[in-house]
Amino acid sequence: MSVMAKYVRIFWPDPKDEDVARRNKAIVTIQSWMSGLEDPWSAIKLASALTAAVGDGVAREEFVPHVERAIVDAGSDAFVRDGHDLEMNVVTLVAALDLIRRPNGDEGGWTAPDALAAGLWSAMSFQQPVSEEAVEMLRQEVIVAARERTMRIAEQSRMRAVVPEVGLLSIPESQPTGTRAKTAYRKATEPLVKALRENAELDREELEFLWWSIEDWSDCLNGRLSDAAPVVRAVVAGIDGAAKLRRLPASGHRNVVLRGVPAGELANLDSALTALGDFREKICVSIDKTRVAEAAPVFPLLSAITDGVVEKRDAAVERDARDWGARALLERGIIQVASLRRS
């Protein structure tokens, strides 16, 4: 099936079959690069760069060298970057879209494609629509696919592992007796220990999150969450709640965080920062400002909280307090998982 057939006319009014075939081949190479990113945080930075590129139409250095090389290696020997920003942006975005639409594996919900999906959802769902209709339609497809994958892995990564029986001890005769016994025991018990460890981590997450929700207390506010104004309560609850997680936040976590936050309280980003007021300083203590700065489009709310700079184009939209709370949970949740699970 041709991945590019549906989208190639965004930059080629009258494409030829061989041109489409070359771009399909390039996409395979680009996806191999994306999937092979050893540190999922690199995928977050890629999502940030790709979102910025879609916003202003300028291809970013974070992906340009890889995409240019893939296109040339696919048979377009004369291809150069100059004048082809739209093509490079679209090809990269289509490669990401097709990648995150694929079934996720059982690596626990934090592979490079998983991180790419979470980053794209966070960044592009805050971004204002772009003027080019065809690009905007593609961008909306990416948002939907990224949201679906992120929510799916948030649920699946919390499924408890089946605890196996201890395996058979197999002791090779060629090794010394003591070494043979230790190696055999470790191999026989390793799957059991791994399952118990993963299940214990999830149990601890549940207990800590539950206890936090019962307490109704925030150190940032030095008071009860339920006593705060809706926007402040939603944002602080999202940030505090995400700090208790070990996987990406699921719908259940969002429901708990937003419990008691009334609907109908609208605020744009400037208004939300004003409402947070002096609490921002304490909130910043719990945020990894370096990571936020490295991928600011993925973390528009946290970026504004930490540096006070508001990107006017995407910040003017008024959002409900509950939307701000959900965004705080997602952004801080991505930072949390990136810090705890580096690969």
Score class of each variant (00 low, 15 high):
Ala117Leu: 01
Thr306Ile: 12
Phe209Thr: 02
Lys312Leu: 15
Arg327Gly: 04
Val130Thr: 02
Ser286Lys: 05
Val58Asn: 11
Ala316Asp: 13
Ser2Leu: 08
Ala234Thr: 02
Leu99Asp: 00
Arg101Asp: 07
Arg233Phe: 00
Thr189Ser: 15
Ala296Ile: 08
Glu318Phe: 05
Ala228Gly: 08
Ile71Thr: 07
Pro300Cys: 03
Gly260Arg: 08
Asp227Pro: 09
Leu269Asn: 08
Ala134Ser: 07
Glu318Tyr: 08
Gln140Phe: 09
Arg139Val: 04
Arg341Ala: 00
Arg247Ser: 06
Leu116Asp: 01
Leu302Gly: 10
Ala123Asp: 07
Leu50Met: 14
Leu221Ala: 10
Pro191Ile: 00
Gln175Val: 15
Ser286Glu: 12
Val235Asn: 00
Cys284Ile: 09
Val64Pro: 04
Ser174Glu: 15
Trp33Cys: 09
Pro65Glu: 12
Lys25Trp: 03
Pro230Cys: 11
Ile27Lys: 03
Ile171Val: 15
Arg313Val: 15
Ser48Lys: 09
Ser157Gln: 07
Ala296Met: 06
Ala43Asp: 09
Ser226Gly: 14
Glu173Met: 12
Ala242Lys: 10
Asn89Thr: 07
Val64Gly: 04
Val317Thr: 08
Asp17Thr: 12
Glu331Lys: 05
Thr290Phe: 03
Glu132Leu: 13
Ser339Ile: 01
Phe299Leu: 02
Asp219Val: 14
Lys182Ser: 15
Val72Ile: 15
Glu331Cys: 06
Glu68Phe: 08
Arg60Gln: 09
Leu99Gly: 06
Thr51Trp: 03
Arg342Met: 03
Val298Ala: 05
Arg259Pro: 07
Arg22Glu: 04
Ile153Leu: 14
Arg160Tyr: 14
Leu86Phe: 07
Glu133Ser: 12
Gly75Pro: 13
Ala53Ser: 10
Arg160His: 13
Ile100Glu: 07
Arg101Gln: 13
Ser35Asn: 01
Glu208Pro: 06
Gly308Cys: 10
Gly264Leu: 10
Leu266Gly: 01
Leu138Thr: 04
Leu273Asp: 01
Val54Asn: 07
Arg322Trp: 00
Phe279Glu: 02
Ala200Asn: 12
Pro191Glu: 08
Ile44Leu: 09
Tyr185His: 12
Val135Ile: 13
Asp219Ile: 05
Ser303Ile: 01
Ala250Arg: 06
Val20Pro: 06
Ala316Asn: 13
Trp324Lys: 07
Ala49Tyr: 11
Ile30Gly: 00
Ser122Val: 10
Leu93Val: 13
Val3Thr: 04
Asn24Pro: 04
Leu192Cys: 07
Leu93Met: 14
Asn89Lys: 02
Ala161Tyr: 05
Ala21Asp: 07
Val317Gln: 12
Arg332Ala: 14
Leu192Val: 07
Pro300Gly: 11
Lys194Phe: 12
Leu86Gln: 01
Ala21Met: 01
Val94His: 06
Ser174Val: 12
Arg81Ala: 08
Arg147Phe: 13
Arg224Lys: 15
Asn89Ser: 10
Ala95Gly: 14
Asp278His: 04
Leu258Val: 08
Thr29Trp: 03
Val310Gly: 11
Val337Asn: 08
Pro40Arg: 00
Pro191Ala: 02
Ser286Ile: 08
Val28Phe: 08
Glu132Lys: 12
Arg186Asn: 11
Asp216Lys: 11
Glu190Val: 04
Ala267Phe: 02
Arg9Leu: 06
Asn222Ser: 05
Ala304Lys: 02
Arg9Thr: 07
Phe63Val: 06
Ala59Asn: 02
Arg23Cys: 09
Met88Lys: 00
